[in-house]
Design a protein around this nucleic acid. Sequence first.
RNA 1: GCGGCGGUGCCCGAGCGGACAAAGGGGCUGGGCUCAAGACCCAGUGGAGUAGAUCCGUCAGGGGUUCAAAUCCCCUCCGCCGCACCA
Length: 935
Amino acid sequence: MNEKDIEFFKDIEKKWQKIWDEKQIYYSNPDKEKQKFFVTFPYPYVSGFLHIGTALSLTRVDIIARYKRLKGYNVLFPQGFHLTGSPIVAKSWRLRNGDEKIIKELKDEGVSDEDIEKLKDPAGWALYFVEKAEEDIRNLGCSIDWRRKFYTTYLHPWYNKFIEWQYRKLKEKGLVITGKHPVVYDPIANIPVGDHDRPDEYAGIGPTEGYIILFKLKDEDIILPAFTLRPETLYGVTNIWINPNGKYSIYLDKESNNKYILPDTIIVEEFNAQGYKLEKNKDIDVKEIIGKKCINPLTKEEVPILPAEFVDIKTGTGIVMSVPSHAPYDYIGLRDLLNTEYKEIAKECLDNMKVLFKVPGYNIPAKEIVEKMKINNQKDIQKLEDATKEIYSLEYYNGILTDIFGKYSGMKIYEAKDNIVKDFIEKNIAKVHYTLKPRFESRYGNLCIVKIIDNQWFLKYSDPEWKKLAHECIDNMNFYPEDAKQDFHQKIDWLKDWACAHNKNELGTPLPWDKSWVIESLSDSTIYMAFYTIAHLIKNIDPNKIEDDLFDYIFLNKGNEEEIIRKYGDIVKRMKEEFEYWYPVDLRSSGKDLIPNHLSFFIFHHVAIFDKKYWPRGIAINGYAVDALGRKMSKSLGNYISLRDALRKYSADILRFIIAMSTNSSYDDAKIDLNKSEFVMKYLISFYNYSIENYNKHQEYEESYIDLWFENKLNKLAKEIEDEYEKLNYMNVINKIFELDNSFEWYLKRASGKINGKVINKYIEYKAIFLYPIVPHIISEIFEKIGLDPFNIRYPENLSYTDEYEKYEKFIKSVRDDLIKLKILINDKKDKVKIIIASKEKYELFKELRNNKDKIDEFLNNYPNYKDILLFVKKNMYILDEFLDREKEYELLNSAKDMFKSELNVKDIIIEYEEESKESKKNRAMPYKPAIVFL
RNA sequence: GCGGCGGUGCCCGAGCGGACAAAGGGGCUGGGCUCAAGACCCAGUGGAGUAGAUCCGUCAGGGGUUCAAAUCCCCUCCGCCGCACCA
């Protein structure tokens, strides 16, 4: 990569960005004369420097914004930043605590020591990166109205007021409700543990919902709580497992006065986080209870307690019920005991095995799969896990309940399970319980549990009426690609209630009616596009004075206008005007990862709060940014690059071009191939040079045939490129521009030196316009250099074109290909070529044939002289649709004479009709395929 | 398991029922231009054939619908992603 050339681009970029800024040309104001287009990009979460993936989605938005301006729209493209949530707080916290990794990272990225000090405060961290992100986006050349910039959380009091208003509205409508909710929780740090609060390998693990079955020790009032994921197997329990190496005690529950046997581990804490108040009552010796009996609460059968080392004393309850007929672990656990002091009991258990489900291919599933997979003993964990998984899924979907299940017999497990469990719970046989599997530590080094949070606030996405409105909105929206529409419908149906508040010290907006909660980060970002319309004006109002009536008036048209104006000032009029003019959002464009969450929420909240006419109109989707080989960009792979570094290394226009080349509206990932930078640079520079050297530098003539042909092509491409821009298919746009390049090459060849200044100018203008949305800096520079106004570029409209011209040049191209092929084939220096156009008779014959394609065989019989030709046509029927008038073909070939001469490197081209030709090959001539003779 | 996306020539990638289309780009090979290299231009890049127009084959695999399929339907195989309170 040539540094000097990159500097050339960067200088131009700096120059134009400065001009745009000074002229404030991206400050968008309502203008009733013009149609508006409001486009948004979901604000990035700025916990650090922006990465190239952000640049991908952002560039896609900027390109459509610029394109729409070329089409004459009044475009609004605002940008804000997202600070809500815990990652910034967590990173800042780690920095404060001297985390070396984070310090090194910051230093590597060029953050000064002085700034690092600022980052030790979460607000400082947040605002620092807001500033850096804005810098990068400006350097990328985005056409943003920066007056409207804002960021989330209480750090921006106006936004805070807006969110409070939003949540009060939702609550009034009954869409925010309370409920219980299990979360992964750090009991020492006293916070819920999100993915970012734990080691990466445990990301994504949530509470496991299971059941406690309340076995009782025989003749004692002590409960042996067995944890299970398969309560429906309770009918088949032969024994209970406990871990012989574990330390168990009796615990008294102060809530219910029940006594439970549990291991002395984190499990006790987990119980207490789920509504129990356990206190240790008495130690027990495991050895003493092994062999004792307990009562199956469902069947009242007595079953023994036996030892098994596979029982994990840190998950569930540390006590497991044994169903050897259906659980491979249990079967093998008993089999292993056959060589021990418990062999009598174990044998009895195995003899008592009960098969509860009819499973295709198995009689006693667990036994048979253990034997089939040759599992030796309970230490063979991998095989046991596989076996369990296979049996469980087979039984769940295909297992038919036997008669023992009474009214449920004959059903499949997955059909009956919920009801069976409900019965158990009503009869106090089972209780719902959550656990963590596997158990892991939080980032703060504490073992996590599952805690049930009461009074959790939910957004009621399960509400069928709400869903209905969301579907209606989707039906009326445009999606790019169109497939996404169906996807959104499904995601709306799939969404359940969403916990929308956190009770920890995250950044965000406190829940207005209960300030101990903070609104969760996806939930404060659903209708903020409306805030953009007033963001620059609302700052004129003292945030402490803002009440709901202001937003009610602007967004919902409620209240008394005069009163509101009296209260807040005349600025309110402008705010109202802005909202009414710009809303709704015409297009929101983002990566596919936001479909099941943010973008769905975006739709949900709009239909809840706003009148139909303000519902969003369009969503565009792109895939992830990956490298040329399709790999994720990550620091560990060494292919990661921040937007900042990419801009430094490649410049904005080159980066934008590479991004555009990589992306259509699609779920497919965008392969951003930075190795293309050299090619792109040369490509743009050569157009730059060509434009300056050729614009207005050629004489203008009345258009010749080939001029007209090329203009026709230009018009056609303009239409096609327009279609691709409308769909945000930028890869296709660039492909079409390459097609233009090829056509232009052809034009130059065909014009053979007699190029027309009119055409050259039009070509330069059009190509510049086509490229402008993608590489606005260099195109602005070109416009200026060639004396056109770079602030008044318009996309060509109402262009007409015809396919006839295409057909003509296809003919020339076809003859040319034959000429070249033949020339290479004979490999002999000849300096004269004859092109012989077929006889009049043949053309007449072909015309007749064209109208009677199905009668070709008759023709073959009737015209034996032309047998060869007709046979050829029979195999190549296309010729009948393609051949032109004899005179037209003559004329066209004549016009291409000069090109043929120079391409074939011959002195003379003679075009003659078959009738007058003396060449013996003349009879091979046919319409569309003249005979060729090298002399 | 559920849901979604996808498998196209050496590579990336359009095309998503017909016009001799496997677009476009990249790579590679040969030729031209050059003292030479680069740039540029031409051709080739599934197989066969050849003073050119040709023949056969091909869009993961297998069936089917159709005068006509990479494109529609069914089945199979393989890859990627999401499954929640997290940005």
